[in-house]
Simulated assay, not measured.
Amino acid sequence: MFELTHQLAQNIVDRAMAILPYNVNVMDSQGLILASGEPNRINTRHEGAQLVLANHRIVELDEQAARTLKGVQPGINLPLMHDEQLIGVLGISGDPQALRTYAELVRMTAEMLVDQSRIQAEQQWRKTRCDDLLAVMLGETGGSQRLIDEAHQLGLKPHLSRTPHLIEIADGQSSAELADWLRSHYTDSWCSTPAPHTVLWCCPIAIDPQRFAERLKSQGWNLQRMASGMPCVDVHALRRCCHRIAELLAYGQAVKPYRLFLSLTRCRLPTLLWTHRAEDTLGELLVPLHNIVARDGNGQLLRTLRSWCEHNGQPQACADALGIHRNSLRYRMERIAELTGKDLSRLDDLVELYLAVQLMPSSG
């Protein structure tokens, strides 16, 4: 059964006394005063309310009747109902004859506030349960059929294809507020907040990252970085992809701190290697680039190699991006081959250089 709280009871009293020139009391299902316009009466027993509770009817008390009861003043005491159950009593102090005309309206208002409070409580429970359920489903061991069935019952639509995005916002901004905004503007979104300034957003529609960033900015959100996965057709694939984009975000923070958007599609292999950075393989891949850095005081050759990788080894596009002649580019690439000991005509050497560039922390 729904139970009145001190906070709800006081809200009823405050609302009623804002328009009534009389004191109002709200009693619980035991006849204890939960809230009153006379604070000294709170937590005292009201025998008039106990009569209402015992008889399930309105009890009017004039001065003579009130003197025979403890903790009572003249007035009208009305049953407070919720879902056809008696949950408390509403008392209005004063001459019963003067109160009859609007006592029922006051009770109706009080019962509407009770219904509103119940709805809000249910909504909060549902939100909390959905958040907890999603955290488990997208965690390391989630995705059981029981959890998926509960997700269906809660209306979370686990059958929808979703793409996970890990969004990092500026310090001082609330990830919980951003999650609420995403849910309200993108129907059927799943959101969780794994960190104070990070939101995991599983979106059922395709988005353009640049347009999305502009929309966030227009709403006052300062996007620091966003790691995006791929469309996932079921919860199991989504859980795995969420784990991957967490690694992708960590990779971006460490290696590409100035990159606003990170895509798992483009960075899958570097991210995979980054997760094994404690092993010798990563250090071995970076040795050729360290050789370049040692002999490249102004960073020209390393910038050239990065641009060459970004432009898929297309000489003219790379030269244009660097603002140099193709002959200058050719000279630089020959110098890179010399310093790294790599044959740029061999695919395996090219792949190793490409991966090394993706794993070498960038300053901009």
Results as ranks from 00 to 15, higher is better:
217 K>S: 07
45 R>E: 09
84 E>G: 00
177 E>C: 00
302 L>Q: 08
193 T>S: 06
222 N>E: 12
126 R>C: 01
238 L>Y: 07
249 L>K: 04
362 S>G: 11
176 A>W: 15
239 R>Y: 10
40 N>H: 11
74 P>E: 10
172 G>M: 11
283 G>A: 01
83 D>F: 06
34 L>T: 13
319 A>H: 13
52 V>K: 08
140 E>T: 07
201 W>C: 02
2 F>H: 09
319 A>E: 09
34 L>W: 14
231 P>E: 06
318 C>R: 07
18 A>T: 12
177 E>K: 04
298 N>A: 02
170 A>F: 08
16 A>T: 00
215 R>C: 01
249 L>P: 11
29 S>K: 04
314 Q>Y: 12
178 L>I: 12
142 G>W: 15
289 L>G: 06
273 L>T: 11
28 D>P: 14
175 S>D: 14
191 C>A: 08
135 A>H: 12
274 W>Y: 14
310 E>T: 00
15 R>N: 05
205 I>E: 15
57 R>I: 00
213 A>P: 10
139 G>S: 13
24 V>W: 12
135 A>D: 13
133 L>A: 10
3 E>S: 03
47 E>L: 01
164 P>V: 00
283 G>C: 01
360 M>H: 13
298 N>E: 15
299 G>Q: 14
41 R>F: 05
194 P>D: 05
164 P>L: 02
317 A>Y: 13
340 T>E: 05
4 L>R: 07
169 I>A: 05
51 L>G: 03
104 E>S: 03
307 S>D: 11
171 D>N: 12
45 R>F: 03
248 L>F: 09
150 E>F: 03
318 C>Q: 07
110 A>L: 05
264 L>E: 11
19 I>H: 15
317 A>R: 08
309 C>K: 10
299 G>C: 07
150 E>S: 03
177 E>Y: 08
150 E>V: 12
2 F>V: 06
246 A>Q: 14
241 C>T: 10
335 R>H: 13
214 E>G: 05
343 D>T: 04
153 Q>C: 04
241 C>P: 08
203 C>N: 15
79 P>F: 09
141 T>A: 07
62 D>T: 09
357 V>G: 00
330 R>C: 01
346 R>F: 10
81 M>H: 14
266 R>N: 07
43 N>Y: 15
209 P>C: 02
191 C>Y: 09
172 G>E: 10
254 A>S: 12
81 M>G: 01
261 F>H: 11
286 L>V: 05
53 L>D: 10
67 R>S: 12
288 P>K: 00
204 P>C: 01
181 W>G: 01
9 A>M: 02
8 L>M: 10
179 A>H: 08
311 H>Q: 04
301 L>A: 02
346 R>M: 07
304 T>Q: 11
141 T>H: 15
250 A>C: 10
336 I>L: 03
177 E>G: 00
216 L>K: 03
87 I>D: 15
201 W>R: 03
183 R>K: 09
315 P>H: 10
235 V>C: 13
199 V>R: 09
4 L>N: 06
137 M>H: 12
226 M>N: 07
20 L>N: 08
109 T>R: 02
37 G>D: 06
47 E>P: 10
215 R>H: 11
199 V>F: 15
97 Q>T: 04
167 I>A: 06
151 A>P: 12
